[in-house]
Amino acid sequence: MSEKKLILVVDDDPDLVEAVSMKLESLEYRVARAYDGEEAMEKIKEEKPALVILDVMMPRKNGWEVCDDIKNNDDLKDIIIVLLTAVADSVKTTSYTHHDGKATLADDYIPKPIDLDKLMEIVGDHCQ
C-alpha cells in the first residue's frame, strides 16, 4: 500500500482550513495546517509536504512570497503548490485574474469560493 501523502493547508481563515482538511482526511491524506505565511514556511521545511494548498492574502507573509521561497529553494522546489484566492466573477476592479494566477511559479490555481470536489480533483491529479 502506498504511503499517505502529506498535504499542507495554508489560509488565514481557520474555518476554511478546517473544511479543506476534513475533506482531505476523509480521502485518506495526511494533513498539516498553517494559518499564515511564516508558519507555512516553518511547516514546509519541517515536514516537507507533497503538496501545499496556499492562500494568497495572509498576515506576516503572503502566498506569493511563500510560493517564491519554495520554488527558489533547491530542497523545496519540487513541492507542488496550488494557489487559492478570493476572486469573484462579480468583481470588476481586480487585476488579479486566473491568467495571472497561472503566471506565478505555482503549479496550479483555484479561485475562491472553492469547489471542494474540484480542489480534491486537482490534489488527486498532482498526488498520483
Binding site: M57, V87, A88, T94, Y96
Partner: peptide, 25 residues
C-alpha cells in the same frame, strides 16, 4: 500591511455584493 496588499493585489475583501452569495457548501 493589509492596505498595501489590497493595492498591490486587489482582492475582493468586502468590496462586492452578490445577487446570490457564494459559499463553500
Amino acid at each position: 500591511f493589509t492596505q498595501f496588499l489590497k493595492r498591490k493585489y486587489p482582492e475582493t475583501r468586502a468590496t462586492y455584493v452578490e445577487k446570490k452569495i457564494k459559499t463553500y457548501g
